[in-house]
């Protein structure tokens, strides 16, 4: 399935990826070809096939409801680009 530039712009926006026009044009081409390849899937009859999300047929294990994680704010925020008063800072969020 061929993509048009609008599809790529839309995906880039949803994925919050800044793209310039040249890059976008390149991705339109690449992704169209990858999707063409992916379209080979359409030839298979899967009407009675259940989707497989995990290769093993196992089920979710549950964790006991216990507090096991101590406060490690200082360590975790050492790798943060901008913090103040223990808060992560981001450009103003307008509600």
């Amino acid at each position: 399935m061929a993509l048009d530039p609008e599809d790529v712009r839309r995906a880039a926006h949803l994925a919050r990826l800044g793209l310039d026009d040249d890059e976008a044009a390149g991705y339109v081409q690449d992704l169209s070809r990858i999707l063409d390849m992916a379209d080979r899937l359409q030839a298979v009859d899967t009407e009675h096939v259940a989707p497989l999300a995990h290769s093993l047929d196992t089920t979710q294990r549950l964790r006991a409801d216990e507090v096991t994680e101590p406060n490690q704010r200082e360590r975790f925020q050492r790798c943060a680009p901008a913090v103040e008063d223990g808060l992560y800072l981001v450009p103003r969020v307008v509600e």
């Binding site: 409801d65 507090v67 704010r73 975790f76 223990g86 808060l87």
Partner: peptide
């Protein structure tokens, strides 16, 4: 009203100092 979070062992208590109850899993490290 669980003690710990749905997917991590951090406390759910209300009113703590900012980000002191956000563990590695909650932060999405």
């Amino acid at each position: 009203s669980t003690q710990s979070k749905i997917f991590s062992g951090a406390s759910t208590a209300f009113g703590a100092e900012p980000n002191t109850q956000a563990c590695a899993v909650d932060l999405g490290l």
